Amino acid sequence: MAAQGNTKVIYAALFANGAIAVTKFIASAVTGSSAMFAEGVHSVVDTGNQFLLLFGIRRSKRPASAEHPFGHGKDLYFYAFMVAIMIFGAGAGFAGYEGIHKLLEPTEVSPSWINYAVLGIAFVFEAVAWTMAYRGFQASRRGRGIIETVHRSKDPTLFTVLFEDTAAMLGLIIAFFGVLATQLTGDPVYDALATCFIAVVLAVTAVFLAIETKGLLVGEAADPNVVRQLRATVTADPAVVAVGDVLTMHLGPNEILATISADFDNSISAGSVEDATARLRKTVQASFPDVSRLYIEARELKPGTASV
């Protein structure tokens, strides 16, 4: 699924997190729960993250220019990386500070049905958003495991929203047990501990997302299957004797830069080599629409020099 196709999922998460944040802050103000306050901050951060992703998608659609001849596709990767930083700094950092502060200086948490009502409503909204994100993620798995799918995905919106929503649901569950334990025992320490656990969940999510988006930002090769098919397509041309390097890099979720070195038949003329190169360009563009930039280098290859 292309990044553009995930905007519905992002908008759903945006509106859900915005509405949930307001209710969480109201519940925190009424009851004094630090866990609810941390969850409110979490929802505000997630709301901001959706804006970052939408802005990244918009920026990535800009056409190529003299300053950026390969386009702006990687803008999406940059803003997805910023999402990871936001989750870690603003989300995990603030929740951790709030939790430790409440552990050192406990304050009374008033028992109230408001906390449970807000948590229940928030969980329903998050579940709906999570389901939409999961369906999009499932469509891209193609029989692969979850970790492998995330690692091979070139569209960060596929897994960023999913893992954000997963962290949000885990945070709600932790907040529920923290509020419940505090109400049953009268000890606010449980509420503070829940806040600390929420910080840990956010930190782990942020690190995982940062690792995956960093790989995309610095440049990842196309899927190995695509590389193999590119090699086979060029090798099949009658004018090609051998294929050497097939080097690829994603410039965006649906933009691949490919550089292929090919050894052409020495018996054909230079004009025939040009014709073969033009023919290969048309064949590759027809079979691989994501290959937006294709460079074919004609050179003599020694036996055993072919590589991926």
Rank of each mutant, 00 (worst) to 15 (best):
M1I: 11
M1G: 09
M1K: 05
A2E: 03
A3R: 14
A3G: 14
Q4T: 15
N6M: 15
N6I: 03
K8V: 14
A12F: 12
A13P: 09
F15P: 03
A19R: 06
I20T: 12
V22K: 02
A29W: 13
G32F: 04
S34L: 07
M36V: 12
T47W: 00
N49I: 01
N49Y: 09
Q50L: 07
L52R: 01
I57L: 15
R58S: 13
P63G: 14
A64K: 09
E67L: 08
E67Y: 10
P69Q: 05
D75Q: 11
Y77G: 14
A80D: 13
A80K: 07
F81K: 00
M82H: 00
M82W: 02
M82S: 01
M86G: 02
M86A: 15
G89E: 04
G89I: 12
G91L: 01
G93W: 13
G99N: 05
E105P: 02
T107E: 13
T107A: 14
E108M: 13
V109R: 06
W113K: 12
A117G: 15
V118D: 03
M132L: 15
R135C: 13
R135S: 11
G136D: 12
F137G: 14
A139V: 14
R141K: 14
G143W: 08
G145Q: 08
K154W: 03
D155F: 03
T157K: 13
F163S: 09
D165T: 10
T166Y: 10
T166I: 08
A167L: 11
L170R: 11
G171Y: 01
L172E: 06
L172A: 08
L172N: 13
I174M: 05
G178W: 05
V189C: 00
A192L: 08
V201R: 04
L202W: 02
V207K: 01
I211Q: 07
G215P: 07
L216R: 14
L216F: 12
A222C: 12
D223T: 10
D223M: 03
P224C: 04
P224M: 09
N225G: 14
R228A: 06
R228M: 05
Q229A: 10
Q229W: 00
V234I: 12
A242P: 05
V243K: 01
G244E: 13
D245V: 12
V246L: 03
T248M: 11
L251A: 11
N254W: 04
E255S: 06
G271N: 09
S272D: 10
E274L: 04
E274T: 09
T277R: 14
R281Q: 12
K282T: 14
A286M: 04
A286G: 02
A286V: 04
S287I: 03
F288R: 03
F288A: 07
Y295N: 07
R299Q: 11
K302S: 13
G304L: 02
T305P: 05
